[in-house]
Simulated assay, not measured.
Amino acid sequence: MTEYEVPARVTSSRSVWPVLLSLLLIVALAGTGYAGWRLWQQRAATEETVAAQDTLLRRLSRQLGDASAEIQQLRQRQSDVTEAARRNTDTLGSLASRADDADATLARINTTIQGGRSRAQLVAVEQLLLIANERARLAHDAKGAADALSLAQDRLGALAEPQLFAIRESLATERGALQALPGVDLEASALSLSALIRRAPQFPQRSRTPAQTSVVDSGPSRDLKPAGDSSAWSRGWSSFREVLGAVFILRRNDKPVDRLLPPEQEVLVGQLLLMKLETARAALLSHQTGVMRATIEDVEGFLDDYYRSDDPAVLGARAELDRLQSLDLDPPLPELGRSLGLLRAYLDATPR
């Protein structure tokens, strides 16, 4: 470097500074203008926002006034509703009190009605027990008495009253005692006797045995001998016939066999048999065991005396009579008064 170059650099640096300052001034002015423009825009936006908020505040103020009026109206309405609710509450309280009184009255009426119905049912059960005792004591009808006890037991069960348990237990015991009795089918037995009565006229009666069993004709007898009389077989046959002729004599008899009774008396025997069977059937239906057994024994002796004992029809009749004679038409019935006594005691102790 020479001494002539240094001043040139100094001159050059001095000429740059004004340019830089001008550029800085321009940039500062531009920034200031931009900042002012931004401030102006923000102010305008703020004024618009304030105006909008002022408009919104005025609108909200009007809406608040309307809401206050509506709230006042609602308060008035609420006061009216509260007053109406209070009146309704008083009315409901009065109605509830009346309903309680009505329920109490209905409960008393229901108790009275139920008590009356229960007592009527118990009176009906008492009648059934009386019927059962009458069927057992007077008619000796074990089945009818058991049916009456069964109906009484069903009616007591429908009442569902715990205090009636002892009566129901006694009824079950009496009904079981009746069902344990030996059953006799009177209808079937009476039908068997009716069938015997219908078949009795066909029973064969006994006949008299004749003195000589049989008689043969006296006509010429044929000599049944094969051809060739001189043969040994013919001689043997002739000897055999002579021996048979010495032992048996066959004769023919065209007269009828004598009977034990004449025809008119045979009809009387048949009528007597029918009468005895009718008596046995009447005794069977009236539950007279002794009379029935004695009559059946008489019928069997009558069959032995006047009818053929080897005939199948007579043998079948004897077997049926033996079966009927073993029946017990009047077995001792159990006592049925305990349940009736318990029921009457319960009715006496229950207020009407």
Rank of each mutant, 00 (worst) to 15 (best):
Ala132Glu: 01
Ala107Tyr: 05
Ser79Asn: 14
Gln76Val: 08
Thr112Cys: 14
Arg77Tyr: 08
His140Ile: 07
Ser79Asp: 14
Gly115Pro: 00
Gln72Asn: 15
Ala177Tyr: 00
Gly176Asp: 08
Asp154Ile: 06
Arg75Ala: 15
Asp80Pro: 09
Gly144Arg: 00
Gly157Asn: 10
Thr173Leu: 14
Asp90Leu: 14
Leu138Trp: 06
Ala99Trp: 01
Arg77Ala: 04
Ala136Asn: 04
Ala107Met: 09
Gln76Cys: 07
Gln114Tyr: 01
Gly116Phe: 08
Ser97Cys: 10
Arg137Met: 07
Leu130Asn: 01
Leu122Gly: 00
Phe165Asn: 13
Asp80Lys: 15
Leu151Asp: 01
Gln163Ile: 07
Thr112Leu: 15
Ala124Arg: 07
Glu134Gln: 03
Asp154Pro: 06
Gly116Cys: 09
Arg155Cys: 04
Asp80Asn: 15
Phe165Gly: 15
Asp141Arg: 07
Gly144Met: 02
Pro162Trp: 11
Gln163Ser: 05
Gln72Tyr: 12
Arg117Pro: 00
Leu92Ala: 06
Glu169His: 11
Gln153Phe: 10
Thr111Ile: 14
Ser97Pro: 00
Leu130Val: 06
Leu151Thr: 07
Leu151Met: 05
Arg175Ser: 03
Glu134Trp: 07
Ala142Leu: 09
Gly157Asp: 14
Ser94Val: 10
Thr91Glu: 12
Ala146Lys: 00
Gly157Lys: 13
Gln76Asn: 05
Leu171Asn: 01
Gly115Asn: 11
Ile131Ser: 04
Ala145Arg: 00
Leu129Met: 12
Thr173Ile: 15
Ser118Val: 02
Asp147Arg: 06
Ala142Glu: 00
Asn88Glu: 15
Ala84Ile: 04
Thr112Trp: 13
Ile71Val: 09
Gly176Trp: 06
Ser118Gln: 08
Val81Thr: 06
Ala142Pro: 01
Arg98Cys: 10
Arg168His: 12
Val81Arg: 08
Thr111Val: 12
Gln114Trp: 01
Glu161Thr: 08
Arg86Leu: 11
